[in-house]
Amino acid sequence: MVRYRRGVGEGLWVASHRVGTRLVYDRVAMLNRFRQFWTKVISPIANLLLKLGVSADAVTLVGTIGVCAGALIFFPRGHIWLGTVVITCFVFSDLIDGYMARTSGTSSKWGSYLDSTLDRLGDGAIFGGLVLYYAGSAGDTPWMAAVTLWALVMGATTSYARAKAESLGLQASGGLAERSDRLVSVLVIGFFSDVLNLPILLEIVLCLLAVASTITVVQRTLSVRKQVLADPANAGLGTPGTPPPASPAPGKPAANEQDGNDAPPATS
């Protein structure tokens, strides 16, 4: 009887694992097909910009300015559908600049840093514009301003959690609500919510995103903790797998001491 139960448990785990793996694979395959389709669409525009001497960094900057302007100009006034259209037009710059960098062979760490940093500004502008909308134009639902602000904070924390984990040599990707999920949800539902005059649709999706983003932060935090506990070498702040620097011998000045004077400790 014990063997039977254990076998059933293992069978259920294997089945659920396969289903989970299949769902992840299907999602990745769908995103790849999406990118391939839009790459074919934007490639003529990207090639034209390259011929005109426009850099990928310039496209990244202009795209971010357009997203921020669309969100902060139209959303606070209650023009959600119009702001969404403007934002969507500039969001495609994220595909264009990547294609331009790969085609011209100018992909670099600087470009990756600039793209990721400006993405955070765009995300903040989108949710910040909705915060201003609920705090002003939609004065009958002030509590939604707090919900949207929480969704903004948790979205930023989700991205930070991954970046910090990777800087420590760990992994913290995935989760219930990644960046693409948050943006697509709020823009698509926001558009139809305004066009159909059903503001409750946007309110519902923002509430769900606030909860989902919070869960994602918890998931990534637990994932990092699990990795650290599984490998004691990850517990140190140095390079994973290397021991911490040895303490100086008695009477010997530390590395941050010069000419007998203590230099201020480094901060992080």
Results as ranks from 00 to 15, higher is better:
S173M: 08
S112N: 15
W110L: 15
Y134D: 09
G169C: 10
G136T: 12
G169M: 11
G175H: 05
M144F: 09
V131G: 12
A172N: 11
G155H: 00
Y133A: 08
L114W: 08
I126N: 13
V153K: 00
L170H: 11
V147N: 04
T106A: 05
G111N: 05
S107R: 06
D119W: 01
A165I: 11
D119V: 03
V147E: 04
T117Y: 00
V131H: 09
K164C: 09
L170M: 15
L118I: 08
A156G: 09
G111F: 05
S173G: 15
A135E: 06
F127D: 13
G169D: 12
S116W: 03
S173C: 03
G136W: 05
L152N: 10
G175D: 13
L176G: 00
E166M: 08
S104Y: 10
A151Y: 00
G139Y: 13
D119I: 07
T103I: 06
L114M: 14
G122E: 12
I126Q: 15
S104N: 10
D123Y: 07
G128M: 06
Q171T: 15
G128V: 12
S159F: 02
G136C: 04
E166H: 12
G111K: 02
V153A: 10
R102M: 07
T103P: 02
E166Y: 11
S107C: 11
G174E: 11
T141W: 04
Y160A: 02
A101Q: 08
M144S: 12
A161P: 01
L132R: 11
S173Q: 13
S104F: 04
A163Q: 06
R102N: 04
V131C: 14
S107M: 06
G128I: 13
S112L: 05
S167I: 07
L121C: 15
A146L: 15
V153W: 03
A146D: 10
L176E: 02
M100P: 10
Y134C: 01
D115A: 06
V147D: 01
L118D: 02
L121Q: 07
V131T: 12
T158Y: 06
S108N: 12
R162W: 10
Y113M: 02
S107T: 14
T148C: 14
A172M: 13
T141S: 10
D140E: 14
G175W: 05
G105R: 00
S137N: 05
L132K: 03
Q171E: 15
A172F: 10
R102C: 06
R120V: 04
Y133T: 09
L152H: 07
T106M: 01
V153P: 00
L149N: 01
F127E: 11
L170P: 12
M154A: 04
S108M: 05
A138W: 06
W150S: 08
S116N: 14
M100E: 12
M154R: 02
K164Q: 01
T141P: 00
M144W: 11
T157F: 02
G122D: 14
V131A: 14
A145I: 13
K109C: 03
G174C: 09
Y133F: 15
S159M: 07
W143R: 03
L176W: 10
R120L: 04
K109N: 10
S112P: 00
S159A: 14
L118A: 07
G129S: 06
A135Y: 06
V147F: 00
G111D: 07
D119N: 03
D119Q: 05
G169I: 08
K164H: 11
